[in-house]
Each structure stands twice: as structure tokens, then as C-alpha cells.
Computed example of a mutant assay.
Amino acid sequence: MKLVPLGDRVVLKQTEKEETTKSGIILAAKAQEKPVTAEVIAVGPGGMVDGKEVTMQVKVGDQVIYSKYAGNEVKLDEEEYVIVKQSDILAIVE
């Protein structure tokens, strides 16, 4: 199966959660923060959204930082993804 986002939506795959701190302390699952960096897996076509023209500024393969509580989490073929609006993406990591 394949996810194809509509409008100004973007499908993201979160980067792996870090389980140890830089000093070597192992974190419990509850103490780990939700990651806010992800790789772009699919990009919607953009177009007219809420009466405004939206041009997509991200592309497949980009590493991005997005709002911490943005989007909807979905599971497809044992993989977890987050679908967000382009406006929830804060930056592209270069």
C-alpha cells in the first residue's frame, strides 16, 4: 500500500527515538520526548486550500522539523507515519 496525501498535506516518517542521553543514561520509554524531526515520505499537490494558493515547499527525502503535537499518526504495513499540513512544518534541515 502507498499513502498519497491530498491538498497541502505531507506524510512524514519520524526519526528514531534516542534511548540514551549523551552522558550514557538510558531513558525509560515514558521519559523520552516525542521526536520532532522526520523525513518527508510523500507530498500532496498543493493548489487551492481555504481559498488561498498553496505551493509545496518540501520534497520527498527532505529532513524536516515539525510542530510537536501536529498531525495525525497512522500505521500502514507495520510502519508508523505522521500526516501533517505543510504549515505545521517549521524548517527543513540541510
Score class of each variant (00 low, 15 high):
Arg9Met: 09
Arg9His: 08
Val10Glu: 00
Val11His: 00
Lys13Tyr: 01
Gln14Val: 15
Thr15Val: 14
Thr15Tyr: 13
Lys17Val: 10
Lys17Glu: 08
Glu19Thr: 07
Thr20Ser: 14
Thr21Phe: 02
Lys22Pro: 03
Lys22Val: 11
Gly24Val: 02
Ile25His: 07
Ile25Gly: 01
Ile26His: 13
Ala28Ser: 14
Ala29Gly: 06
Lys30Tyr: 12
Ala31Lys: 06
Lys34Glu: 07
Lys34Pro: 02
Pro35Met: 10
Pro35Asn: 07
Val36Pro: 00
Thr37Ser: 14
Thr37Gln: 15
Ile41Glu: 01
Ala42Tyr: 04
Ala42Lys: 05
Ala42Cys: 07
Pro45Phe: 01
Pro45His: 02
Gly46Asp: 07
Gly47Arg: 06
Gly47Thr: 10
Met48Asn: 14
Met48Tyr: 10
Val49Ala: 03
Val49Thr: 11
Lys52Thr: 15
Glu53Leu: 14
Glu53Val: 15
Glu53Asn: 13
Val58His: 00
Val58Ala: 01
Lys59Thr: 09
Val60Ser: 08
Asp62Cys: 06
Asp62Val: 06
Gln63Gly: 05
Gln63Cys: 12
Val64Gln: 01
Val64Trp: 00
Val64Leu: 02
Ile65Lys: 06
Ile65Leu: 10
Ile65Arg: 06
Tyr66Ala: 01
Lys68Arg: 14
Tyr69Gln: 13
Tyr69Lys: 12
Ala70His: 08
Asn72Pro: 04
Glu73Thr: 13
Glu73Trp: 05
Val74Asn: 13
Val74Lys: 11
Val74Pro: 10
Val74Thr: 13
Lys75Ala: 12
Leu76Arg: 10
Asp77Met: 12
Glu78Asp: 13
Glu79Thr: 10
